[in-house]
């Protein structure tokens, strides 16, 4: 169901959804700032399945970014930063203040970073930025992600994994495993 006139369900906001956002039946998007940083130009930039609850989630999606979310997901105050691709399965829970990104946003080599700093500045208006490598983030079904978690570029989190609060995920997480720490390490399995 694509309907650009669906209001965002929130007590003090009545903004309209951007036209390239597709949401399923009984999915709720609440929050004033959800689309403040939504610059996506893709035809289907953000697709959310049915029965999801997106409470104060920030969809910070760049021009070429695409975000796909399954059914029955429950996100609270998560920040989704996407320049390429973010694929989230069904029955995924994400806690408060968690950030997921598929980009580093700036190049690693120092010389290139100087060019980027200039291009990003008010002086470098219109100047092309150095090309960046993005890598898709994939979160499979039934994953639980706690508050204050950071998930970095190129990560795949396997089905049923349990990410403890405050973890910084720098490597792929196998299905059904439980991780904690910075960097996140496996501490057990989930059934």
């Amino acid at each position: 169901m694509s309907d650009s006139t669906v209001p965002i369900d929130d007590s003090w906001s009545h903004d309209r959804l951007p036209p390239n956002v597709d949401i399923g039946l009984q999915t709720i998007i609440a929050g004033q700032h959800s689309f403040k940083r939504f610059y996506c130009q893709q035809e289907k930039g953000l697709t959310i399945g049915a029965h999801c609850s997106m409470n104060h989630v920030q969809f910070a999606i760049g021009q070429s970014g695409r975000v796909q979310i399954g059914n029955y997901c429950y996100f609270t105050n998560a920040v989704l930063l996407c320049e390429l691709e973010l694929r989230i399965g069904s029955y995924v829970i994400i806690g408060w203040n968690t950030t997921i990104t598929d980009s580093d946003f700036h190049p690693l080599p120092p010389a290139q970073r100087i060019l980027d700093a200039v291009a990003c500045s008010p002086i470098g208006k219109g100047q092309a930025r150095p090309l960046l490598q993005h890598a898709p983030v994939i979160i499979e079904d039934d994953v639980w992600i706690g508050p204050s978690v950071t998930i970095l570029k190129g990560i795949t989190i396997g089905a049923g994994a349990f990410i403890e609060p405050g973890s910084v995920v720098t490597h792929d997480v196998p299905p059904q495993s439980r991780v904690i720490g910075n960097p996140a390490r496996i501490i057990g399995t989930n059934t």
């Binding site: 029965h51 029955y91 639980w144 089905a159």
Partner: peptide, 29 residues
């Protein structure tokens, strides 16, 4: 700061699925 005495969800994936299905029928969720 986050102070939590609960994960607000069951440990098992299948029970989490049931919980999320129930929540989607509730208001507020």
């Amino acid at each position: 700061v986050v102070i939590m005495d609960t994960y607000q969800a069951p440990e098992s994936s299948s029970q989490r699925r049931m919980m999320l299905q129930q929540i989607s029928q509730r208001s507020p969720r």
